[in-house]
Design a protein around this nucleic acid. Structure first.
Length: 118
DNA sequence: AAATTGACGGTTA
DNA sequence: GTAACCGCCAATT
């Protein structure tokens, strides 16, 4: 009984990366989402680490609001202090412990259904 | 081939 | 609340 995903084929990896970039491009101004949420939306729920890898190493990510992606605890990316500044500039507030106020700013996309085929 | 490394997530202490 | 683990998986060493 296989309870973990198979290794990605190169085709799947390419689709995964384009899906990740598409999703990030749609995070609304002043909102944030998490690596795990994006991974789940792509259909690879256990690949949250790959989401971060894609954003870190894809040149296209430079043009996207990838500062709106934080981890589930609301922590910003290590070694990227400017991420907090960018978020604060668009109205995102932080708690005293240095984390994003997720209750206020987590992107709720219940009325939206992501479809990678479009 | 084996071990380590992360823009991660969840459970436990 | 924090911290230490453990599970995860592609890339790197």
């Amino acid at each position: 009984m296989k309870d973990y995903p198979d290794r990605m084929t190169p085709q799947q990896a390419r689709l995964f990366q384009s899906d990740v970039l598409n999703i990030v491009s749609q995070i609304p101004h002043g909102k944030v989402t998490t690596y795990g949420t994006i991974a789940t939306l792509t259909g690879w729920p256990s690949h949250s680490r790959m989401v971060g890898r894609t954003l870190r190493y894809s040149p296209e990510a430079e043009t996207l609001p990838c500062h709106r992606v934080v981890n589930i605890a609301g922590r910003t990316a290590p070694g990227w202090s400017r991420q907090r500044t960018l978020l604060e500039e668009e109205g995102v507030t932080f708690k005293p412990n240095g984390r994003v106020d997720m209750e206020r700013h987590l992107w709720h996309f219940s009325a939206y259904h992501y479809d990678s085929s479009t």
